[in-house]
Amino acid sequence: MTEKTENKELVQEDVQVENESTETEAQAVVEEQVELTIEEQYEAKLAELQAKLDDEENRHLRLRADFDNIRRRQQVEREAAEKYRAQNLLTDLLPVLDNFERALQIEPTSDEAASIVKGIEMVYRSLIEATEKEGLQVIKAEGEQFDPNVHQAVMQEQDSEKETGVVVRELQKGYILKDRVLRPTMVSVNE
């Protein structure tokens, strides 16, 4: 072989070695970029999944809080329903109590009428005891300071012996069931 051929071969080998090293370096750079891209993809996917997990945890906590609020509200409603279970019945019985009181105001004129009044009085007392067991109470009015929460003023009177705003007369009894006014007391108030 001639020297020219040998040099040519050596140059080709150098070029080939140089090309191989350049290809290897290029391949290493590509692989490194692919690895970075894969890592970035994993990190992005991880961040996305973490965000979804956080959203679901927040949603779960809100739902749990809503559920607790609903449960508490239902408990309060059940307690109120139990506490005031007799309200409708007692409201319907108020006119009956009024009629008994009117009947008891009549003065008997004979022994027979006195015996009927006595029987009415016994029934009335039984009815009052039963309603008191359920929590029904009469609202005190006469001589009390007027309270618009429990009294209904239907007229005014002039009484110099009493202070202004004091209930002078009770015109119709009012009743409270536990802490709820069933019917306000109709009153006449001093000017």
Rank of each mutant, 00 (worst) to 15 (best):
L10N: 15
R71K: 12
R183D: 03
K140A: 14
N69M: 12
Q156N: 06
A141L: 01
T109W: 01
L127C: 03
Y84C: 02
E35L: 10
L93E: 04
D147S: 11
E79M: 11
M1K: 08
T109N: 04
E170F: 03
K178E: 07
K118V: 09
A81G: 03
L182K: 03
K4R: 11
R78V: 04
I106P: 02
E32P: 01
D111I: 03
E144S: 12
T37Y: 04
E23F: 10
T2H: 14
A80W: 09
R85V: 08
Q74C: 11
Q41K: 13
E134F: 12
E107K: 08
G135R: 06
T91I: 14
R71N: 06
V187D: 12
L89E: 11
K133W: 03
K162G: 00
L94P: 00
E144A: 09
A51K: 14
S126R: 11
E161L: 15
E18F: 11
V138H: 05
T164R: 08
K178W: 04
K52A: 07
G165F: 06
S126Y: 04
E3L: 13
A141Y: 08
V29R: 12
L46A: 15
L136E: 08
Y175R: 00
Q87Y: 01
E13Y: 11
A47L: 10
Q16H: 04
